[in-house]
């Protein structure tokens, strides 16, 4: 009888449909796509990391203004854009400016840093505007972009701040400045390459 009972389960087992552990919530895929978008191209990546280093160079009390500025910028970019036809060169220029500020005078020139954060947010927002499609899908993707860009910047800031506060060796601050100089150099080269001819970015 026991054996028969066990056998009775067999059809149920083999009739099982493939497991869909993650049932796709409508629009969620677009949300994730939007979330990753601010880190998907070299120009956006350089802007994000450059701004992360820039914000991380300030104390937490001052950094919140930069983060707020970036948030306002991303909203503005997503809502007002697209206004700039070729956005990549401007992004490389902004990344270069942010990296220069970190490399040469970190944690100073607050107003310029806020302006860079707002402009950077705007550019990231504008670059993240999805192609034409159903409004609902576009809204999901744009929401993802706002979350991805701002949480991403928050994470970058937190990493820099964490390392700076935990590692008290003098060379740690220097290392961030050197990294910023390297990223600034890359941004400037990319700006030049983009202005000369279309390249394989």
């Amino acid at each position: 009888m026991t054996a028969l009972r066990q056998l009775a389960w067999f059809p149920v087992v083999i009739a099982a449909s493939p497991a869909c552990a993650h049932s796709p919530v409508p629009g969620l895929e677009g949300f994730y796509t939007g979330m990753l978008h601010p880190f998907s191209t070299p120009s956006q990546l350089l802007v994000m990391v450059g701004l992360g280093l820039l914000v991380g160079a300030f104390a937490v009390k001052s950094a919140r203004w930069l983060l707020c500025g970036f948030l306002v910028g991303t909203f503005a970019g997503l809502l007002m854009g697209p206004l700039i036809p070729d956005i990549d060169p401007i992004m490389f220029a902004l990344a270069f400016a942010a990296c220069c500020l970190v490399a040469l005078i970190p944690g100073r020139l607050m107003l310029i840093a806020i302006a860079l954060a707002i402009t950077g947010g705007y550019l990231i927002g504008e670059a993240s505007i999805p192609d034409e499609g159903p409004t609902r899908d576009r809204l999901f993707t744009m929401s993802g972009s706002i979350v991805g860009a701002n949480v991403g910047l928050l994470y970058l800031f937190s990493i820099v701040d964490f390392v700076r506060s935990r590692c008290v060796w003098p060379w740690v601050g220097v290392a961030f400045r050197v990294i910023a100089a390297w990223l600034g150099a890359i941004s400037l080269m990319m700006l030049a390459l983009g202005s000369v001819e279309p390249t394989t970015l």
């Binding site: 220069c100 490399a103 100089a181 390297w182 600034g184 150099a185 400037l188 080269m189 700006l191 030049a192």
Partner: peptide, 12 residues
């Protein structure tokens, strides 16, 4: 810090 930044100008 100065070297890579100025080097990039040369590369440009």
């Amino acid at each position: 810090v100065v070297f890579p930044l100025v080097m990039a100008l040369g590369a440009v």
